[in-house]
């Protein structure tokens, strides 16, 4: 939906989108496992699992914002 990045590369660096996709889903899956386990047993490694889930989710957001940022611009004048 956003304006294209350039004629040659309309969506910019798509690898950032893939990193965002992978990290967001891995972070959510890890959180879904680690959070109930941490609430039930509270082992220290489960705490680190939560921290890793948080890191993955934040990484995903940063990647997606970096991918979108250059595409927030006015329309290119038509040739």
């Amino acid at each position: 939906m956003f304006p294209s990045h350039s004629r040659e590369c309309p969506r910019g660096d798509e690898r950032l989108g893939w990193v965002g996709y992978g990290a967001l889903n891995a972070g959510l899956a890890l959180r879904a496992i680690a959070e109930p386990l941490h609430a039930t047993y509270a082992f220290i490694w489960m705490g680190w699992g939560l921290a890793l889930a948080a890191l993955l989710q934040v990484l995903a957001i940063w990647a997606l914002v970096l991918a979108l940022w250059p595409r927030v611009k006015g329309a290119r004048p038509r040739a």
């Binding site: 489960m46 680190w48 939560l50 921290a51 948080a54 934040v58 957001i61 979108l68 927030v72």
Partner: peptide, 25 residues
Amino acid sequence: IRTALLQLLLGSTVGGLLLAEKGLH
């Protein structure tokens, strides 16, 4: 949209710190 993206970055970073704090105290 740029301000919204910045707030997404900041808000989710704070959320990530809170989630990590939940595990690490």
